[in-house]
Amino acid sequence: MNRPLVGAIAVVCHRDRIILVQRGKQPSAGMWGFPGGHLELGETALQAAARELLEETGVTAHPLDYLTNIDVILRDTDGVITQQYLLAAVLCEYQQGTPQTADDAEQAQWIAIADLDSCGLPLLDQVAEVARLAQTRMQNR
């Protein structure tokens, strides 16, 4: 029986910019989104977000809190569900490092949040909304 998978994404907001990666593997190869991946057994989503961030970009950040959850339901051309994920978006505080391509990311870079709607990158669903939520949360800390 197929079941939804649980993952975590690291939303690192620093100086009104966020770190995005271009996915190198399916699903969504070529699309830009937050670094992240599956939880490992015994790992919290906060721990997974920090680990995946480091593995994919070489950047170290401290996970602060859960930001939101994102439901991702992928369907084939006939509308049949092929994969389903529940992603915990984790707000992370930047500590050190420059985004470098690693693991399954094709590219990694800082992007100005104000430029997300006009940057021309193919963004995954909800990236801009989650980035703005992170920016607001960081400003209110």
Rank of each mutant, 00 (worst) to 15 (best):
W110T: 13
Q26G: 00
E56M: 11
V59W: 08
Q22F: 05
Q26M: 06
H14L: 12
V12D: 05
A45V: 11
H38Q: 04
G33L: 08
Q109K: 14
D71F: 15
D16R: 14
P27R: 03
L67K: 02
H38P: 00
Y66L: 09
L20C: 09
F34C: 00
T68V: 10
V11N: 04
I73V: 15
L20W: 12
A108M: 13
L54S: 10
Y66K: 06
A102G: 11
D16H: 13
Q107M: 13
I9V: 12
E55V: 00
I73L: 12
W110Y: 14
Q47S: 07
G79D: 02
A49V: 10
I18F: 13
L91N: 04
A89T: 05
L74R: 01
L39S: 01
H14G: 11
T101I: 12
D103C: 14
P35W: 00
G37M: 04
W110E: 09
P63T: 05
V11I: 11
C13L: 13
V80Y: 05
Y66C: 07
L64M: 11
T68E: 14
W32N: 00
Q83H: 13
G58H: 07
D103F: 14
G33A: 02
E40N: 04
W32Q: 00
N69F: 15
G97Y: 08
E106A: 14
L74S: 01
T68Q: 12
S28V: 01
T98M: 13
L53K: 02
Q84N: 06
L20A: 08
Q96W: 08
A8T: 06
R23V: 03
Q100V: 12
A105F: 14
V12G: 04
W32G: 00
D65H: 09
R23S: 08
V21G: 13
R75T: 11
D71I: 15
P35L: 00
G42D: 07
Q109G: 13
G42W: 01
E52P: 09
L64S: 03
Q96R: 12
G42I: 04
Y85A: 02
Q100A: 14
I70N: 03
R17N: 06
Q84C: 10
K25C: 04
I19R: 05
G37K: 03
D65T: 12
Q83P: 00
L87W: 15
Q26H: 10
W110Q: 09
L39K: 01
H38K: 03
Q95R: 10
D104Y: 14
W110P: 15
A102S: 14
D78N: 11
E56I: 01
D104V: 15
G97Q: 04
R23T: 04
C13T: 11
T82E: 01
D76H: 02
T57G: 14
A8H: 05
Q96N: 09
L46D: 05
L87G: 00
G30D: 03
Q84A: 15
A88R: 06
D78P: 00
H62P: 00
P27H: 08
Q83I: 07
P27M: 06
L86I: 09
T44Y: 06
Q96V: 12
Y94A: 05
A10E: 11
L41P: 00
